[in-house]
Design a protein around this nucleic acid. Structure first.
Lengths: 251, 251
DNA sequence: CGTAGGCTTGAAAAGCGTCAATAGGAGTGG
DNA sequence: CCACTCCTATTGACGCTTTTCAAGCCTACG
C-alpha cells in the first residue's frame, strides 16, 4: 500500500470534469489540489464494502473495478464497471453508508480522496460541484440503460449490448482499438452484469460469433465484424453514454 | 393547460432539498423564487418524450408519473415511479437530450422549471446545488436496487420487493397508511417495472396472498400482513431509499 | 510442469412467457 | 338508472428460453 500523495494523480479527474462544464484554471487547480492518497490495489481487493461507512471517494488511475450488490441466496448483480479516469462513486462523497461494493477486477491504482474534501470543493467552487453532479447524472443514465437491458431484452441482445458498450468505453479510455478489444471481465462476470448465467453467456457469445457479428481469436478478445450489425443485434444506441460534446458545455 | 405561476408551488421541492443539506433561509427563498409554470396533466400524457430536447425540469405536485424506456420489439422498461414532492429528472436540467420518457400514470399537476434557471441556481447557491446533487444520488441508488431486483431475483421476490418499496414511499408521501395502500399502477405496469409479464405478476401476487404475506380487498389495495415476513420474502432492505436522517445533514 | 480457474458443451428441468378465454369494474352515453 | 364498452384482472394449458447439473478441456500462472 503506497500512501504517498502524487501531485498530478487527479489529472484524469480534472480532464473528465472539464469535459462538460467550462472550468476556469482556478477550478482545475482546486481539483488537482485535492488531498489524496494513491493506493496500489490487488485483483479482487475491495475498495468499498456494502454496509460499511464510506470515508473516501475514489478515482481509478489504472485497472478495472466493478460496482456490485449482493442479493439473498448469494446472487450478485454487477451494476457498473469502472476504468482508468472514472470517478468511482462520487456518490460515496454524499451517501454515507455504502449500499454496494466496489471491487478490483484486475490489479491497478486508485486515488482516495477524503469525503469532506469533495463536499467542500463542491461548495467553494460551484462549477466543480456542477461538474460532479453532471458525472453522477451520466452514471445514473448508464444504470437506467442497464436496467432496461436486463429487464426487457433477451439474452442474445443483452450480451451484444454490453459488447457494444465495452467497445465504445474502452476506446474512449484508450484501452481498445477501433473494432477490437480485450474483454475486461470473465464470462461469469458478464453473466452477473446481464442477469444471466455464465453458461448462457457463453452460448450467446458463440451465437454472435457464428453469425459473424464478432470474431474471437482468444477467449477474451473481441473483434467486431460489422459495427452496425452488432449494434442492431444489441439494440444499442450510444446516447445514454453521453460521450460527445454535441451537448454543449454548461455555463 | 394552466400557465399561471404559483408562488408556493415549489414548497414541496424546498422541503425535500432541505431534508439532507442544511439550507439557509436565503437558499430556501431562492428555490421558491424559481420561475415555474404549473400545468395540469391528464392520465397517459407525456411530460418528457425519449429523444426530444428537455427544456424544463419537473416537480410532481400531485398524481403519479413513471419514467420509462422503450426497447427494440416494443418492450418497455419502467425505471422509476414519481409521486407528489418528487423532482422528476433534475437530470433533465443537465443532460440535454432525454434518453427516456416520463408519462403521467394518473391525472395530476406538475411544476415546470426552465432548465437554465436550475443551473443558475446550482451555481449561485452552491448549497442548493449540493442538495440537488444529493437528490440525483438517491435516484441513482434506486436505479441500482431495481437493477439488482430485475437482474438477480426470482419473480416472487421481485414483486414482494416492489410492494415493500411502495409501502414506504407512499407512507412518506402521505399517500398510504402504515400497513396498507392502493397500488399506484396496474399489473401490467408492475410487470414492466419488474421485468416480468402481467400474467406472471398476477400469479405472484396471488402466491403472496395465499401465503398470508399480503391481503387484497380489491384488486388495487394491498394490506401487509406481517411487514417482517414480506420484507424477507422480498429481500428488502430500505437503506437504498435513504429516507432517514440517520445520515446526518451535510454542511 | 502442475494446478486452479475459466471456458465449452450436452442433457434435462424449471421458471416464466405466450396464447386464449372469462370475468370484473369504472366510466360513458342514452 | 341501465346498458354498453373498454381496460384490467384472473385462470388454465402449453411451449420455449434460460437455468441447472455435470463433465471435460484449455490456458495462464506459479
Amino acid at each position: 500500500m503506497d500512501h504517498s500523495a502524487h501531485a498530478l494523480a487527479l489529472e484524469p479527474l480534472a480532464l473528465k470534469l472539464a469535459k462538460h462544464v467550462d472550468l476556469g484554471s482556478a477550478d482545475r487547480a482546486a481539483i488537482l489540489a485535492l488531498p489524496c492518497i494513491v493506493k496500489r490495489m490487488e485483483r479482487h481487493q475491495y475498495i468499498v464494502r456494502e454496509r460499511e461507512l464510506a470515508t473516501h471517494s475514489v478515482v481509478m488511475l489504472s485497472g478495472y473495478s466493478i460496482l456490485s450488490k449482493l442479493v439473498a441466496g448469494g446472487g450478485r448483480q454487477i451494476l457498473a464497471i469502472h476504468m482508468a479516469g472514472d470517478a468511482v462513486d462520487l456518490q460515496n462523497s454524499i451517501l454515507k453508508v455504502a449500499d454496494h461494493s466496489v471491487q478490483m477486477l484486475t490489479r491497478g491504482e486508485v486515488a482516495l480522496i477524503p469525503r469532506e474534501e469533495v463536499i467542500h470543493l463542491a461548495i467553494n467552487r460551484p462549477k466543480v460541484g456542477l461538474a460532479m453532479w453532471w458525472d453522477t447524472l451520466v452514471d445514473a443514465s448508464k444504470f437506467r440503460e442497464w436496467l432496461a437491458n436486463v429487464g426487457r431484452r433477451d439474452a442474445r441482445t443483452r450480451v451484444a449490448h454490453i459488447l457494444c458498450e465495452f467497445s465504445l468505453c474502452l476506446k474512449v479510455a484508450g484501452l481498445g482499438g477501433d473494432n477490437d478489444y480485450e474483454l475486461p471481465m470473465t464470462q461469469e462476470q458478464l453473466a452477473d452484469s446481464t442477469g444471466l448465467t455464465a453458461v448462457h453467456v457463453n452460448r450467446m457469445l458463440k451465437s454472435l460469433q457464428s453469425d459473424g457479428l464478432i470474431h474471437r481469436s482468444s477467449t477474451r478478445s473481441v473483434r467486431i465484424g460489422d459495427w452496425r450489425n452488432l449494434a442492431e443485434a444489441g439494440d444499442f444506441d450510444s446516447t445514454y453514454l453521453h460521450l460527445n460534446r454535441d451537448e454543449p458545455a454548461l455555463v
